[in-house]
Write a protein that binds this DNA or RNA. Structure first.
Lengths: 210, 210, 210, 210
DNA sequence: AATGAATGAGCTTTCATTCAT
DNA sequence: TATGAATGAAAGCTCATTCAT
């Protein structure tokens, strides 16, 4: 969706090669960290020559940025599916649950997210890409919250507070899964997120699944 | 508390130099990220020669590890002060609030934490240091939660759930402060953490400060 | 015969570059000694960048080891030619004379041998490579000596003693040529080796050339 | 005999410290080779600070040169004892045997000799020191040989050839002991040297010991 | 499109030497 | 005399990038 060369269609061969390379970056970053990931070990993992990496992505930074974009893209496709749900509460539930699906929330993907967040403090490019995605996602969440509050006029219901609290809990659970001293499993984390949601919305607890 | 050479006292000169160097690492990592931090720019920031870095810390990795240890040490000294509080609930409150004090929760320190967490996925050494500290802190939190539940026998009160939920929220708020698309301030984050606590313990909400 | 990468054929370009580099190492060690030979001066002598040295030989030690292997290889090809001689005595003579040919016994090559032998006391790798080659060569000498003694049944003739004595004399002459206080020439050394041989085998003196 | 500071007597303390340092150099060179010997590991072995090395020997090269001088000095004191023998043949025998005494011919000392000879190709200073010592020793040997030939007028006897052959054999045996693929013992080497002498002087074989 | 040898700037590290104490 | 922290030049090595093929 955000290919490197936007104005020209990629040949199928190129697309396949690029996908393979990005996959190798994911593997390398998870294995060696961002500072330990070199074009050489990416090339080895992708079983291509070093030259093609530059050929397709122009520079190492370009390769990393593209990898981040695809990571975000995949994440986005996950949560956007939840938006089709007509009921606002179920939309909120769907958004939260999408953060704990297997492809999004694997050990490898979490390592990738934290690797980029770790660098984001210093690399404005990553920061910007991450921030844009986060805003996008937050917008979806808060509009679901707003819709939910609308439908429950009698109750005091602050959509912003709700959205922030939900997002913070999700992010925190991701961090705990990543550092994993307590080795929190994906499903345990999801259960905790749901429990938090029930705590936030005690009146609708029955409608919120495990 | 965790000096580099544990079995021999450092000369005051050495201690001062080492402190200056570690300070420079903090600055450099916050500014350039872990992968952009070189011995050269650390030496420049500390206004010492590159040689002393190795002289005192043996290697770049040793320097980073020592920096991480001191970061954790500082953090720990913050939350351990809260343990002196006799009332369990106030101990919990104190632990949470200590995560949002200025020295622990500055933009620079957050960048440092996330830089290390980003690398922790790949660097077993960092992972181990972080994990050990996290366990230590979690122990303090859960024992406060247990004591709190003890004193409130009538209520259903799961100390583990309580502790996990509190920690997850704190971690999530740190992450949001770091990525900062919504530019969450330290005091706002603290307020949200307190609100979350009141939500978890509605019966004691009045005893939980802003 | 002992290429760096044994399981894959080198491209002609690589082979040429590697040969050039090894040649430069020989020059550098002869000129500056092992401890004075740096990747920088090898690169300068070979007129290549420092990077290629590592690219082709992985490390400085790898480069030195390969140089030693090629030195031995060249030496070996010299003495193995002598083995084709059918007469055992002439085979012995041939082996001895091969130690004093121009390519094997130049000032530069001697400097190289002694540089490696000097380090061999401390570097197990060099020691092993040297020892293996020496055993190989000694095997050739002693089997020639055994064959010679066989054909001269009447005489008392200890092949091991003969072989050891010949080798010791050769080695000693090499050392004297290297330290060269008396500036012993290659041909003078060869004459002395031949004289020593005639002394050891007085009955066959006439068959042993100058 | 050749102290670093010739014009001023050393204090006993200094002399002791210097001796200890030189001993450490011997150890270090035998263990790590010349290129692996640093002031740091010499200081560690000698259990002194790095500063004193420079204080006493001015530079690393000065330290090495002094070590070489003391090595030679010790060697010289060994063979000069043999000169007191009135009989020329026994003087020759004594000179040869002095090359195979325990202090002169240990694994460590041989490593030292070859380390310096290895560098002598490139370091004029070492070369000069070695050469001077060698000439000195050769003078002693050839004058013994001349005296021997004098007393045996009837025989053809070339003192230079004799001396060269003896020295070459000794040097060769040293080299073989150093590389030691065949693990030649000191006493075996001495026996071979004696056998060589008997071969050179068959008429006097009975007077030449094992 | 793809390769892989080559480059060269810059990295981490080493180490002889200096110097305040 | 002796120490050991500090220096700084230079070492070995890494790695993003280039380019002839």
């Amino acid at each position: 969706m955000t290919p490197q060369i936007a104005d020209r269609a990629l040949s199928p061969t190129s697309a396949r090669t690029q996908a393979r390379i990005v996959e190798a970056v994911v593997e390398a970053v998870a294995q060696y960290g961002i500072s330990g990931t070199t074009l050489a070990n990416v090339a080895t993992l992708a079983e291509v020559s070093q030259g093609v990496l530059i050929f397709h992505f122009k520079s190492k930074e370009g390769l990393f940025a593209e990898t981040l974009r695809r990571l975000i893209e995949e994440y986005q496709q996950g949560w956007q599916a939840a938006l089709e749900e007509p009921d606002p509460l179920q939309r909120i539930v769907g958004l939260v649950r999408s953060d704990f699906t297997a492809p999004v929330c694997s050990r490898k993907k979490l390592a990738l997210w934290f690797a980029f967040w770790g660098e984001a403090g210093a690399q404005p490019l990553y920061n910007e890409i991450c921030a844009k995605s986060e805003i996008h996602r937050y917008e979806a969440m808060i509009s679901a919250c707003r819709a939910f509050c609308e439908t429950n006029k009698g109750e005091t219901c602050d959509p912003a507070l709700l959205a922030h609290s939900i997002d913070a809990m999700t992010d925190g659970l991701w961090l705990q899964m990543h550092i994993s001293a307590k080795s929190l499993s994906r499903t345990d984390a999801r259960s905790m997120a749901m429990a938090h949601l029930r705590l936030l919305l005690p009146k609708w607890a029955a409608a919120i699944p495990q």
